[in-house]
């Protein structure tokens, strides 16, 4: 199914996500790289030794959620834009999602934007709390977004302004 739609199933997402216990402890990366391709920048970028060094460049990334501190270095280096960072208990009601974003114009801090699931469906509205776009990110900006906790396993990105 995934091979014909490009939409990861709930089961795949749950398997990739950190455990509930780890999510309670703060920021952590979620790497949605489900199929072996010759690509290793995430492992090369990681400074925490959380992503296991690849034996074969076609390996899938293995993330040690306990070592990961959610620093976002892997995220801006992932050519597949397949990584987000989640801080589940950012507020009582909201998780903080950091997502890679390559569309211009960038939203503004404070904007309320449309949150999408993996099939591109509008599921919630989210607030942009921070935008990081330094030169070192090489045009892949990081948006920090407030997302209601109930959408933790569904939210993945925001709608872009294509009319």
């Amino acid at each position: 199914m995934f091979e014909s739609t490009g939409v990861a199933t709930r089961e795949m997402v749950m398997k990739t996500f950190p455990t509930k216990e780890r999510l309670e402890k703060g920021s952590v990366a979620v790497i949605e790289c489900y199929k072996e391709i010759p690509c290793n920048p995430c492992a090369t970028a990681c400074r925490q030794d959380a992503i296991k060094t690849f034996v074969d460049i076609n390996d899938l990334p293995t993330l040690d959620h306990e070592r990961c501190n959610g620093c976002t270095l892997c995220m801006v280096n992932c050519p597949g834009l397949a990584i987000v960072v989640v801080d589940k208990n950012y507020t009582g009601e909201d998780a903080l999602f950091k997502i890679p974003f390559e569309f211009k114009p960038l939203p503004l801090e404070g904007d309320i934007v449309r949150g999408l699931n993996r099939a591109g469906e509008h599921i919630c509205d989210v607030e942009v709390v921070k935008i990081q776009n330094p030169k070192s990110f090489d045009q892949t900006a990081i948006l920090s977004l407030l997302v209601k906790k109930e959408y933790l396993y569904d939210f993945i990105t925001i709608e872009v302004g294509v009319k």
Binding site: F2, G6, C33, P79, L81, L116, R118
Partner: peptide, 10 residues
Amino acid sequence: LVHASKIRRL
């Protein structure tokens, strides 16, 4: 599939 997912989710 990472390329597919990245456009599918939009």
